[in-house]
Amino acid sequence: MSDLLHFSEHTLQEFALVFMAIVYTMRIRWLFKFKGGRERQAPTGLPDTTKRKGIMYSWAAIAMPWTMESTRKKAFFYAQFVIFHLGVVAAILLSFLIPYVPSVLKSSAVVLIFQISIGAAFIVGCGRIIRRITSKYVRAISSPDDYFSLILLTVWFGFAFFAVPNNYQQGETVLLTYFILTAFFLMYVPFSKISHYLYYPFSRYWFGKSMGYRGVYPLRRSTKQRGVEYGN
């Protein structure tokens, strides 16, 4: 292994992680500088709805696609979301396994699982790029950051896919590119839309707390499926 690859796998990643953690800390401090909301009124809704239930439901909603009409009616899109985010998890995990526990990747089954996860995410990423360019609605709302973040992740998936076997003996270019991209990704994330996962627990916490207190969460609906269906 070359010094450059070793540096990229260790020092560069550690620096990028520390940088990201510092920026995130600053970001959370910034968020908490804004005033908090307070609800003075007595709770509304059915007695079995509470703030706590609302928060738990709100956090879990993303894993319960049947609860939101937007995910319920777009099962294919929801599946893409799951695949894409599993790919992100796999590609991040890979950046720790290669430098710290490379033995795990000696198992061909593990390699296959990682490659399937990351490869599928790469395909979804390509689909999402096409959607962002071709959909009139999505194009109208997209910023350069939206395009760049998506392309960055998709390209990263591509290199991660080939980096999974960790065969630096057969050439370091793929691994080197993957780790440099990972470091760039870690440092870019706090400034981009990719940092949404930082906000997710907070936004869903506050929304769920309010909706639970007001008896809206957990959502209820008549399960009988008929009537006018829009947006399919």
Partner: peptide
């Protein structure tokens, strides 16, 4: 006017477009 809930709503949107077809104006 801004509070924490509003700030996360303003900063946290990923432009995924899932909300588009939930609005009667869009439909």
């Amino acid at each position: 006017k801004l509070n924490r809930q509003m700030v996360t709503s303003l900063a946290g949107c990923v432009h995924c477009g899932m909300c588009i077809e939930t609005c009667h104006y869009v439909l």
